[in-house]
Structures are given as structure tokens and as C-alpha cells.
């Protein structure tokens, strides 16, 4: 019923439009004018509209920046993330300046040079000085951005392994994450997809001496100010481990291991204080991976060394888990 009603309404609307067009065309025929000719009056209206709507758009942009500012991610909770935030501020500032200069120029020109039949445009076909100017200036600015960007990238990606770096594996599969701690030896035991069986959901090779003290976990605990190296694997399709608060992201690709190292700088408790009681660090999936891609999460908790030690001690070794309980 509703469908028929909709069809009827649409047909009526179209019929009305046809009639309106017809009438307007007939009217102008009577007045011996061409409806579709762009008149000075049209130019005037459209020029003014560009000024109004154009600046309306810029105001809309400012409004969004003000109203939604509190929704954006809080400042980074990691060492390299703070540098990324700084670079982001500079780059954002820069493009905003360019945006707020070029857009008004565009809208203003449209208004200012709206045409009149009696006017004539100024014949101005090229000017090499201008071309050079506006090639060189962007080049200089971009060179600076590139250099700054590459430095930040280099620092973020090339982590040096130190004694105190904890190695943790994050393993993605449709549609959940599992973590594996490397244990006292801080070495992850080897793994192979062919060994995935029963409780050994990560396919860890228990014959490898490094594997015995590994620990599997459904949430990841980290120690504040201690570097950590995350190693990523995937069981089935590509996933992407995304930790927005730490400015960390890396794809998890079946058949290879990827990694990302960082140092957290704020505990969950501290974040709860500034961001609200509900705050949690979350790892989300950021590569389309199937129907439940939208709900694939892993909780991260940053805490003090003591809290961490307590938690870790409560976690079972893989050896106990896999070999004794079977």
C-alpha cells in the first residue's frame, strides 16, 4: 500500500514539475525571451549566492571544529604518538590556513567578477613570473613538511629493541583477537598454522623451548613507560590492529609477521580521570575482514609495574594450559 502511495506521489510531483516548466517556457515565449539565457540578473543572484553559501560553508566548517572538538581523540598516550600529534598540529594548521585563504578568494572572485553584458573580461593568458611564484612557494612548504614527516615516521617505525622491551604477540582471526605474552625469557615460541588444534588456538610449537613459558591472554596489560613490541599474525584474512589512543596501527597479514613498537605514557587509571570513568584503551580491527568486522575488539590496560606483575603472575603458562589439562 505505502509503495503504491509513494509511486502516486512521485508521478504527481513529476507531472507538476512538467507543468511548471511548460508555463514558464510559454510565458517567456510570450515575452519573446529565451528562458535559458543567462541574464545579468542571474549573474547577480548567483554571484551573491556564492558569496553567501561559500562563506556559509566556511562558517559550517568552523562550527564543526568548535562543536565536535571534544569528540576527537585525546592527546596521544605514547612517546612517538606525541610527536605525531605535533606534526599533525602543524600540518592541520597549515592546510587550514591554505583552505581559509583559497576558498574565500574563490567565492569572492565569483561575486566580484559576476558578469554583465556591458562588461568585458581582461585578456590575461599567462604570466611566467606568477607561475614560478606559485610553483616555488608550495615546493618550499612541502619540502619542509616532507622532511619533518620523514623524521617523525622514522622515529615511529624503527624501534630499537632494548632489554626492557616486552614482546607480545597479537593474533587476529574472524572475529576476535588473542594475545600471547613471551614469558620470562621474553622470547615468543615459534608458531605454525598447521599446529592450530584444540586449545592451541595460536598454533604454538610446544617443542620450541621458548614456548613453554608463553602466556595467552584475552586482554593486554602494559606497564607505563616501558617499551613494548607488538608482533602481529593473522589466521585467515587481513585484519588491521588499530590502537587509536596510542597512534598505533599495523595490518595483520596471513603468512607473515608484522610489528609495531611503542611506549605507553599514561595509565588507564590516569585516562579515566581525564576522559571519564568509561574510558578504556581499545584495539579495534581496521581492515575489512568479514561480517563482524565492526565488532572485533581487544582491551588494553596500562598500569604500574606492581599491578602488572600481579596480573601476569595470575596468568597460566602455555605449557600448563596445553600439556597438563589435556
Amino acid at each position: 500500500m505505502t509503495n503504491i502511495l509513494i509511486v502516486v506521489v512521485v508521478i504527481l510531483l513529476v507531472a507538476t514539475l512538467v507543468q511548471i516548466l511548460r508555463v514558464s517556457e510559454l510565458l517567456s515565449e510570450i515575452k519573446n525571451k529565451d528562458v535559458n539565457e543567462v541574464t545579468d540578473k542571474d549573474n547577480n543572484t548567483q554571484g551573491i549566492l556564492f558569496l553567501i553559501v561559500g562563506f556559509g560553508f566556511l562558517i559550517f566548517v568552523v562550527w564543526q571544529m568548535v562543536t565536535w572538538n571534544h569528540l576527537l581523540l585525546p592527546p596521544a598516550s605514547s612517546v612517538h604518538g606525541t610527536q605525531i600529534d605535533f606534526l599533525m598540529k602543524i600540518s592541520m594548521g597549515l592546510i587550514l590556513v591554505v583552505f581559509f585563504v583559497l576558498s574565500p578568494i574563490l567565492f569572492y572572485f565569483l561575486y566580484k567578477y559576476r558578469g554583465k553584458k556591458s562588461n568585458k573580461a581582461y585578456f590575461f593568458s599567462h604570466n611566467n613570473k606568477l607561475e614560478v611564484l606559485w610553483t616555488v612557494i608550495p615546493t618550499i612548504i612541502l619540502t619542509a613538511l616532507i622532511i619533518f614527516g620523514l623524521k617523525t615516521w622514522d622515529k615511529a617505525m624503527n624501534v630499537e629493541l632494548t632489554e626492557s622491551t616486552t614482546i607480545i604477540e597479537v593474533y587476529g582471526q574472524q572475529f576476535n583477537w588473542t594475545a600471547r605474552y613471551s614469558g620470562l625469557d621474553n622470547n615468543l615460541g615459534k608458531a605454525n598454522f598447521k599446529l592450530v588444534k584444540g586449545r592451541n588456538t595460536l598454533g604454538v610449537d610446544m617443542l620450541d623451548a621458548n614456548a613453554a613459558d608463553d602466556k595467552m591472554a584475552r586482554e593486554v596489560h602494559l606497564v607505563i613507560d616501558q617499551p613494548v613490541l607488538l608482533k602481529f599474525r593473522s589466521q585467515d584474512v587481513i585484519h588491521s590492529a588499530f590502537l587509536p589512543h596510542f597512534r598505533v596501527q599495523m595490518n595483520c597479514v596471513p603468512g607473515m609477521t608484522t610489528q609495531f613498537g611503542f611506549t605507553p605514557t599514561k595509565t588507564t587509571a590516569q585516562m579515566k580521570e581525564s576522559e571519564g570513568e568509561d574510558f578504556e584503551y581499545i584495539l579495534l580491527c581496521n581492515k575489512i575482514c568479514g561480517a563482524s568486522h565492526y565488532n572485533m575488539q581487544l582491551k588494553f590496560i596500562v598500569e604500574t609495574q606492581e599491578e602488572y606483575d600481579l596480573w601476569l603472575a595470575s596468568q597460566e603458562n602455555l605449557e600448563t594450559k596445553l600439556l597438563t589439562q589435556k
Binding site: V38, D42, N43, Q46, G47, L102, I105, L106, F109, L110, Y113, R114, G115, K116, N119, K120, A121, Y122, F124, N127, L130, E131, W134, T135, P138, T139, L142
Partner: peptide, 24 residues
């Protein structure tokens, strides 16, 4: 680097509009 020729194009469009007799 792509931003450079892109910027040049934008500037040239703006320069084309400048002192035109724009018909909308």
C-alpha cells in the same frame, strides 16, 4: 610532490576567474 602540480592548477583556475566577466 603531487601536491605541487595540483596547487598550480588551482592557482591557475583562480587566475582565470580574476577580472573575468563571469556568466553563471
Amino acid at each position: 610532490l603531487i601536491a605541487i602540480p595540483s596547487a598550480v592548477k588551482v592557482f591557475n583556475y583562480l587566475a582565470t576567474l580574476w577580472r573575468g566577466n563571469i556568466r553563471f
